[in-house]
Design a protein around this nucleic acid. Sequence first.
DNA 1: ACTATATAGTTCTACGTCGAACTTAATCAA
DNA 2: TTGATTAAGTTCGACGTAGAACTATATAGT
Lengths: 148, 148
Amino acid sequence: MPEHGPPPIFDLLNEIGIISQLSRAAMEARTPEGVVLPHFSVLNHLVRLGDGRTPLQIARAFQMPKNSLTHTLSGLEARGWIEMRPNPEDKRSKLVFLTDAGRAFRDDTIQSLAQDFQAIVPEIEPGEVEVVLPFLKKLRALLDQRRD
Amino acid sequence: MPEHGPPPIFDLLNEIGIISQLSRAAMEARTPEGVVLPHFSVLNHLVRLGDGRTPLQIARAFQMPKNSLTHTLSGLEARGWIEMRPNPEDKRSKLVFLTDAGRAFRDDTIQSLAQDFQAIVPEIEPGEVEVVLPFLKKLRALLDQRRD
DNA sequence: ACTATATAGTTCTACGTCGAACTTAATCAA
DNA sequence: TTGATTAAGTTCGACGTAGAACTATATAGT
């Protein structure tokens, strides 16, 4: 008598939502007052993929509305972690560059978090990551293309 | 030149954060004005695990501060989807019960979402879920116990 | 029984987030 | 070139979220 509950994707998304909450809290506990996960995420993004990007490119990478990113960038700029320069190729646009202080803060945060996650890292086996991470990327891509 | 990046858990959490955002947006697009993911999550929780629980129990299940849950419950109550009754065993406390309208809304939402996720569900293989879901539960448990 | 402490839930306040409207510049059409 | 449309970024307003303080009740210690 299959009161066939919701498909497993609901369980997955439910769990993902809670983990997202918890990891954000964990991250923000290690970070100066008013510095929030998106701040770190943007810095990390710029380090890994290179700076000199436009705000819109960054916003799209995080599936985040551009007005939200404006707010995040203004916080980063106020702390001297990024610089906004005009985009020579498009006067409407800007380019975002990391400062040395920005790189330093990003590195320090990773250090601090890695230390904080020391107890967790060993519990994660490479084999699991090999399955889970691609799966998550697939799921993200599916959700992304689903919104017309 | 090993600028050895952050450990894989950072990638995992990053991906999880974005998926959480996307799935929330997808869910709220299918839902009446002002009805937000936690509303549905709480209803779903009560259906699956049974109602007659206290707000605090629910808040803990979602790793959510109790004051946030107060807000969510008041929204559910205002829409007639739950009832709050006094807890006979503890006069400080209350018990949360589903109404018929609440169950109906939950079922309808699942229907609508399942339809919406039709394109995604087939892409998810049972074998993947068997690995990913337990992994996520483990990760959640680790993150949870990590906050002292 | 009495006091101190802990717990359930709410209120107050601050803030991150996001849709909508706006400004300015680029692109496209004729 | 001119006018219309699209794109980049900001501003404004509404709202969900969460820390801190508060009220009321329960529990523990003596």
